[in-house]
Write a protein that binds this DNA or RNA. Structure first.
Lengths: 143, 143
DNA sequence: CTAATACATGACTATTTTGTCAAGTATCTG
DNA sequence: CAGATACTTGACAAAATAGTCATGTATTAG
């Protein structure tokens, strides 16, 4: 159960965008510098966020990335779903098949229902936190 | 945010042991067969579980693995901690440093507190489910 | 129109996680 | 004690994830 690099760094990129206001574009270079990441990597992360519809890009001089919605409207849940994929029950069943082509516990699986509940608990929690809450937290507000 | 293979398969191995009663040993071969995994892999998983103190092994003919505690006393939290490591806040900070030697957000990190809360929520949930609950679920009980 | 800026993309490399293998040790049975 | 069973271990191989690079396209400034 761990946070992936994409989730961590992708979220940070979004926060950089959120900080600058939805209107104003921020360049890859700026984000990279502020986060201590390579521009190439930031580009790749933003690619995913763009595809997920969380950000939008503008090319050319004066170009950059910006959020498509207000920070108050972007939940951590949607961020994690865009970047790291909280897997569905079905995906878990398909992923852990051991040597076989399908999981031995295909009927009546106790493990599956436990993971499903855990996923629900996590998503529930994450869907209740928004980028704006994190910006607030940086200024002293405790989650 | 995903469940690792070790967590999934490790848990299943434990459930196989739980099913057979704490007293009776189960061999690697039996578990491997029932779970559709290679004996070598099951062995490795049990190695970790043994190190974590969740299981104990007996060598020789009539040997095998068994739980060190009753299924009612082994929480999913302890299983996940033994196998997959739910990372501590400190570990997250140390892991995601980007290009630098330490994270740029070393003071005043909003992301950190969000992950910390998420971890707390997950552990809280997992610490309330026990192997015995899962065995029950297999027989129709819904978690 | 040309140069400069900045996003876009696919292919590549590196690292981590998964999973396997081979050689070894302990225990029981006859 | 000899042979069979089954755990033990470290090193290796395969697959997935993380991160880089080179080349291309759109937009603006002059």
């Amino acid at each position: 159960m761990k946070i992936t690099a994409q989730e961590e760094y992708g979220l940070r990129c979004l926060l950089q965008l959120a900080k600058n206001g939805v209107e104003n574009g921020v360049t890859v270079k700026e984000i990279a510098q502020k986060e201590g990441l390579s521009p190439a990597y930031v580009e790749k992360l933003l690619r995913h966020l763009n595809q997920a519809g969380l950000t939008q890009s503008v090319r050319g001089t004066k170009g950059g990335y910006h959020l498509t919605r207000k920070p108050e409207e972007i939940s951590l849940g949607s961020v994690v779903r865009a970047l790291g994929k909280v897997p569905s029950t079905q995906e878990i069943c398909d992923r852990f098949t051991g040597n076989l082509t399908s999981c031995v516990h295909i009927n009546d699986c106790c493990v599956r229902s436990a993971w499903a509940s855990l996923t629900r608990v996590m998503e529930n929690f994450l869907d209740g936190i928004f980028l704006s809450d994190l910006l607030g937290a940086e200024k002293g507000f405790k989650i």
